[in-house]
Design a protein around this nucleic acid. Structure first.
Lengths: 206, 206
DNA sequence: GTGCGGGTTGACTGACCAGTCAATCTGTCG
DNA sequence: CGACAGATTGACTGGTCAGTCAACCCGCAC
């Protein structure tokens, strides 16, 4: 039965139902302060069913994070494979992250607040995955330095952390209403982040 | 007795003993995963004594955060009061934060990981205080824009968040060994952060 | 229609831990 | 010295919740 296509589809849908409910609950109440029963209630399923699809409460969050983060890593790799100036690559990366937020702000809130910036609890587990993103961005910077597009006196990894840190702080600003986050602001932000950071990295006339 | 100077000093020292122990425990195990008894053990005092000096476990963390954050806010205000170019003001601010890390990395780890970047739990409570820092930095930027030192097409608050986000990400890199954090690296970082960010903000010839 | 097997249910358990409190200690003052 | 006050102790309580599990449901195969 689990082998038949109809049922495995149904199972996947149930699983997704729980994951989507978890996003809403985590975003609203935070991972540590919500109960597994909150997730089950939000999904409209019984408590025990959560444990049929996931080994633990942690695994629910892990799944949400990894699903999205892997998509982002792939997107960065694709961007980097294209023959573009580094500035445009960074713009594409910033754009991808901002669009992720536009598309599903609750999911991005959960990922940033509960994983990426929670390096003592979940971040710990995913430090390697998070680090991968920095390394990919650093590689973009390094190549740009080799080709003279960026100045060479800033360590690529350092530049990558600065770039990513700026983006994440802006998202955090939107998430907690410290920064206006209307549609137009998001578009503006893509441009401004890269403009701010690249101005400093750019080796062009100064 | 609590009124006599010798005892009130002794009381203050005991309180400090507990606070310092809490820093080490929070840095090592994280706020959520440590027990109050861990703090008491680390301080070498009885469990109940923690509750003699603090109303709750939360209040211990609140105290640590506010103590340090208020010092930082004051430092930023003092920097801003001086007649310096904005770039040097930002350098002084970055320097202050980096020196805070050099002086007591465990405390900075706790503040960043458990408060500043934990906007769902403790950050929530202190959102206002955190926001104050952004506003102070934004004020520096705004004045620099008015005087033509910085370009005016980037919102001051946005610039402040970018600047602060970059710093915090670098500290996070040191905290979790994603970035080399030797003594010389810290000095280098002060310069590079401002260099990176201001290059973009600076309205000088481009 | 009967039986199988996975999906689904929710009451229950075991562990954990923040915070309380009554008892004890210690140093000071009259 | 006696007694008082605040400091210190740590056993205990109450509540919370992640995870378990035995029972039940339901669609399918034969």
């Amino acid at each position: 039965m689990a082998a038949s296509p109809r049922n495995s589809t149904a199972a996947a849908e149930k699983r997704r139902l729980i994951l989507d409910a978890a996003v809403r609950v985590f975003a609203r109440q935070g991972f540590h302060t919500c109960r597994v029963s909150d997730i089950a209630d939000e999904a409209g399923v019984a408590y025990g069913l959560v444990y049929h699809y996931f080994r633990s409460k942690d695994e629910v969050l892990d799944t949400l994070f990894l699903e999205r983060w892997n998509v982002m890593l792939e997107a960065i790799r694709e961007v980097d494979a294209q023959p573009l100036p580094a500035r445009e690559k960074l713009e594409a990366i910033a754009s991808f992250i901002v669009e992720s937020y536009r598309h599903d702000p609750e999911l991005m809130k959960v990922i940033i607040v509960e994983v990426t910036r929670a390096a003592n609890s979940f971040g710990q587990t995913h430090l390697g995955k998070i680090r991968e993103a920095f390394d990919l961005i650093a590689a973009v910077v390094r190549r740009a330095q080799d080709e003279g597009e960026f100045r060479s006196d800033i360590s690529p990894l350092f530049a990558a952390m600065t770039f990513y840190g700026a983006i994440e702080q802006v998202l955090t600003g939107w998430i907690f209403d410290a920064l206006p986050g209307a549609d137009a602001d998001l578009d503006e932000a893509k441009r401004l982040i890269v403009e701010t950071i690249c101005g400093g990295l750019d080796s062009s006339d100064r």
